[in-house]
Design a protein around this nucleic acid. Structure first.
Lengths: 189, 189
DNA sequence: CTAGTCTTCCTAATAGACTTAGGCAAACGT
DNA sequence: ACGTTTGCCTAAGTCTATTAGGAAGACTAG
């Protein structure tokens, strides 16, 4: 038996590609083994179990997404930065639907702490430096921005916006206008 | 063999309860059969397959959610209506996490057309009657509101807001303030 | 270089889940 | 009371996840 050269890294990457192809829910140990031309049981030398595999994909996706967003935001401020952030986020989700689904998987606290989720929060906060928001408001705004980005992408992906002729792109753009506007005029408590 | 009195309706309801207990992803034909004290194969006299079952739960959840929201919004207008809508939506998702997950399942177009999804859109539009928005803007606002509500609930449920001490309740309230504010001052194109 | 160890992959086996086919008996309509 | 429909069963095939134990390639110390 010639060794197939399976490593955790290659497995994770292949699982991510598989997720983008067939959906994160359909990422299966069996399918992955097929893709590598080895038996299913062999993969258990590299991963703990199916959940472990999915978690690794989630961590990969969170890191990739953070990288993309960081690159897009670099050197921008204010509304420019907001639009760049949101665009990079949505682009990633559309290009990598399976990975994006993975990124939204519920992680246990320790795993979440080791993930790039912290970078996401930091970057969102960085966006808000272009607007004058002090701390409790800032946190609220971070949560609102995260909700809009994830919610929009999630609904769009689920086809929830297909029932109306209005361009999804246009609504996205106007939504960002609205966010910029409300961040500039954040209502007092 | 005494008949167990299984009907599609009872199956769907039990599946919904099961979903709230163990998560929508863990709703399984086998578990449902156990709950009714019949063999798995017997359920196939009532449902087409596992996907059919899940779709029925989704339709149930969409209808229930629409009812709750409708009841909450009745007789209110403006920000009052907005807050009531959002509160009912979030409450339902928290009380029935499995059903809520079901409601967010991707449905094929014909099924979606027969669902209560249309009522959701109508009700959201109704909220906007309290604000002066004409048609392309209105659609954009409907999409934004849907995104915020779903996104917030989704992130909150996934535990994404647990890493910061700020009260989730407070952020929610301020997010609604922000939405009200931006709907009142919708930026021009 | 060789002996021992570690690692990767295999076979074999179990268990849970989905689904179809075919049969029996209860419930229902006439 | 009789025939049809319908609910539930057994049996069986498929797929996935996972564990145990074995064989042989790959590395490592002497």
């Amino acid at each position: 038996m010639v060794r197939a050269g399976v490593t955790v890294e290659r497995l994770t990457l292949a699982a991510a590609e598989l997720a983008d192809d067939v959906g994160f829910d359909n990422v299966t140990v069996a399918a992955l083994a097929r893709r590598f031309g080895v038996k299913e049981a062999s993969l258990y030398s590299h991963i703990k179990n199916a959940r472990d595999l999915k978690t690794r994909v989630a961590l990969l996706a969170l890191a990739e997404l953070a990288d993309q967003v960081a690159a897009a935001v670099a050197g921008r401020a204010g509304k420019d930065a907001l639009v760049a952030f949101a665009g990079a986020y949505r682009d990633y989700a559309k290009r990598h639907p399976g990975r994006y689904a993975a990124a939204r998987m519920k992680l246990d606290l320790e795993t979440a702490a080791m993930s790039a989720a912290g970078r996401h929060a930091e970057m969102t906060r960085a966006i808000l430096r272009g607007y004058e928001l002090s701390d409790p408001d800032q946190t609220d705004a971070v949560r609102m921005l995260g909700s809009v980005f994830h919610g929009y992408v999630s609904l769009e992906t689920a086809g929830a916006f297909q029932h109306h002729p209005r361009e999804v792109e246009a609504s996205w753009s106007r939504t960002l206008d609205a966010l910029d506007s409300v961040l500039q005029n954040w209502p007092p408590a």
